[in-house]
Design a protein around this nucleic acid. Sequence first.
DNA 1: CCACGGTGGTAGA
DNA 2: TCTACCACCGTGG
Length: 183
Amino acid sequence: MKTKSRRLLIELLLPTADGDFVARYSDTGLAALEFPGTSTPRPDSTAATPPPEILRWHCVTSRAMDAALAGRTPEELPPLDLSTGTEFQRHVWQALRNIDCGQTRSYSEIAQTLGNPNATHAVGGACGANPIPVQVPCHRVLAAHARLGGFSGGLDWKRRLLEREGIRFQGQGPANHPASKIS
DNA sequence: CCACGGTGGTAGA
DNA sequence: TCTACCACCGTGG
């Protein structure tokens, strides 16, 4: 394996009802997804014609986004290239993928799943480093007591995604709530 | 080594 | 309910 030949990053515009996302592909699959307005305003075209395979993946990604943004589980996903993260991060991302649509987990629950019950804060960091938001559902991770918690892409997006899935959450009270727990 | 987070929990105001 | 602080962890400088 020497030099990871994944420098091949092709950017493609991904129009949705919620705006134009930008998808980036490596030679092994979808490597990143960016919310509308954030970064790369133009996918650019200098990169000649993308390989047919990538165009096919992009098609799948497009359908997957339409479904996800509508609060449904995509029927098919393109191969995901999550090789960029550290091992810990990849474990977290994998755990995120195990959360079904409409369900949630807390940062500490994810930490427990990884067998590292005290790495809750680190889990938050890994979620923030998630290169493929929406499809790798980092938005389904809430803080303790179903509090909203944070979100790299902006809390407005997190709320929207959760609402589309019919998920209920507490107002983002900045403080903790020792009382009334949800069992 | 140090500082910083998408945290969690406690203790006081 | 909100702020202040501490404990814990993985990352990056």
